[in-house]
């Protein structure tokens, strides 16, 4: 260990899911892949390349920007622990 100097990058020991009360649920059928949720997500935790908008629930803090900005209103914020639609 030689810290204060020369540490690695991208070391993520703890997830951020604890920040969250609500989590986004995407209606994949209604989604038009405008990618606005993807670019606005502060965490960058929405993945778009699979053709579906997939949220990394380890790092989603549940801010709700994606739901607020979705032009089709196809993202809903669901309380953690409750059944996703």
């Amino acid at each position: 260990m030689f810290f204060g100097a020369s540490n690695g990058v991208g070391i993520l020991p703890t997830p951020n899911s604890g920040f969250r009360t609500f989590h986004p649920v995407v209606d994949q059928d209604a989604c038009i892949h405008c990618n606005l949720c993807w670019i606005y997500c502060p965490e960058g935790c929405i993945e778009k390349e699979t053709g579906k908008m997939v949220v990394d629930m380890d790092y989603c803090k549940g801010c709700g920007i994606c739901a607020n900005e979705c032009p089709r209103k196809c993202i809903s914020m669901v309380k953690d622990g409750e059944q996703d639609e």
Partner: peptide, 25 residues
């Protein structure tokens, strides 16, 4: 030195450190 930024092996320098590690430094 290895204590420098490196495109092949990216580094963090002058990192923030909490009470849990500061004394060791």
């Amino acid at each position: 030195t290895s204590n420098k930024l490196d495109l092949e092996d990216p580094k963090t320098l002058c990192q923030t450190v909490g009470p849990d590690f500061h004394m060791e430094g």
